[in-house]
Design a protein around this nucleic acid. Sequence first.
DNA 1: TTGAAAGCGGTACCAT
DNA 2: ATGGTACCGCTTTCAA
Lengths: 338, 338
Amino acid sequence: MKQRVTIVDVARDAGVSIATVSAALNDRPGVSEPTRKRIVATAKRLGWSPSLRGRSLSQKRAFSVGLVIQRNPSVIASDPFFAGFISGVESVLEDGGYALVLQVAPTRQRTIARYRQLAADHRVDGVFLTDVSIPDTRFDLVRRLGIPAVAINARPGGDGISSVRQAHEPAIDALLHHLVDLGHRRIAHVSGPKDYIHAHDRETAWREYLSGARIRPGACVEGDFSLASGSRAAAALLRRRPRPTAVFCANDLMAIGFIAKATELGFSVPGDVSVAGYDGIDFGAYARPSLTTVTTAPHVLGEQAARTLLAMLDGAPASHVDTEPASLVVRASTGPPT
Amino acid sequence: MKQRVTIVDVARDAGVSIATVSAALNDRPGVSEPTRKRIVATAKRLGWSPSLRGRSLSQKRAFSVGLVIQRNPSVIASDPFFAGFISGVESVLEDGGYALVLQVAPTRQRTIARYRQLAADHRVDGVFLTDVSIPDTRFDLVRRLGIPAVAINARPGGDGISSVRQAHEPAIDALLHHLVDLGHRRIAHVSGPKDYIHAHDRETAWREYLSGARIRPGACVEGDFSLASGSRAAAALLRRRPRPTAVFCANDLMAIGFIAKATELGFSVPGDVSVAGYDGIDFGAYARPSLTTVTTAPHVLGEQAARTLLAMLDGAPASHVDTEPASLVVRASTGPPT
DNA sequence: TTGAAAGCGGTACCAT
DNA sequence: ATGGTACCGCTTTCAA
């Protein structure tokens, strides 16, 4: 880790001042073409690349953005959202010369603390806010700290905070329509933690679609997005009388956990109970029965979020962008009630 | 993002020089207790926290470490290793005041390029090397660049490069012993890409155990660690004559893909063919049949890797640490041959 | 068009 | 025990 060649070396070698070198290599006007060429050549010959540190200090920019994942360690391992989201973010950051600082926090409180620290250190120029809750204190926090932020799958409207969202309603409507079409009338829901905005949104979509179709929403039990909580939900729901004939789970993990438990209890899926998930994770296609679900595109969401954030760092005002809505994928875990 | 209070403000307010403030707040000797207390108090009152940027420049340290994940975007989403590994890394870095810079690259070439850029920018003080291949040019690269590095699940021995490893042999031996014990004699293997060291290691462990047990190793087909490649392997292996009665897959994803395809082709698992995986991902417990596998501990590996790297940054020489070996978990996907 | 010099916010050496 | 000051590597006025 030995930094040798600096702007001073280049300047000396090219016989100009460091100011000229700086201007030349940042394509700023005021440098004659011959001089610029000469400088670029020597810089290249000397193998010089500008020090991010020096630049950071003088420009008061970190050239990186932050993401704090708030997730229980036991859930995070199987949650495929972040891998896709991050690779999307990364693909855009790379081209912009920015880097992603990733942190993991187990609780909401610790999450806040990490954002606060990121800000205090000036380690990042902007942040992503995922797993938005209601209310979410991070909004006020970043606003107060004056840090550009992009919220994912949150409602637009926070002033100064951008958002990127993939609509869930059309696909959830299509899913419920599919179930009703098959003849289901007792359709239960396994929700995520209710203070998460996306959990809340999915539940609301479920409830409203059914109300609109003049069907009384079935039971709703709260899970935590984990496989295990899906299993617990199955145990709870399948002992109810009358038993639901179909269940919409707020994510695929819970749906798979649900199916595993249902099968274990002697119920057949979809014979005795149809099960659908949300997310469209790869495993869904390999589960038995394969999972009817709603496919989402975390990678695209990540790309858009990164683009939006970089734009804000360049001075663009907060904005809201909608990506292509999620869509229904019908597989083998849903069928007519018997 | 307005940085206001600097060390100068604190110095002025406390009526001392900035040198004294710096010394006081870094617990360096040469500051009288009363002065130190006064300084700490004013710093706190003014809400001062040292600028990472200023410190970075003068200390020539980035206070962050890097990890470039090299993975095909389609595989990364379902691969649970990194989530666990990263959360382990992060938990240690947090306490050390370090941050993790995470990058994602689709190919080996791009991976190298990203490491090179991280070094050129001096964006990180050290790096993790995962998914080590044979040969792996990154070893020479980081050595040449003089960047402290920790390789994960690689063989010890690279001078100047530490390694952290969770032994696979005992568990793979136990797994094969389990299969042989059940009566299996035709035991096939679905490997990962053979140029990956861990893929190679697992295959070797399989081959050597069987040789040692005087059993001829069965067929070995190469996969890419994805669900889909597990399915392809099933199609290929199950049409062989004589058919293998058991299959050891180099990771759980392929094992699950294998089972899905086998079932689809009309084979029963473990009736017609026993299937075992490697990794111990959560899904294994929820698959039908539940998956016999080898559990690993990515989180622990991450913690150890981070500790080792931080130690190197503090001047410790390269070292090698072994974590608790992986261990066998017998579930329902393996049984006696029929 | 080019250069000198003042920051940016710290650390650390050397006097005092 | 303190303070003065020269860096660290770059950007950015302002003069020449």
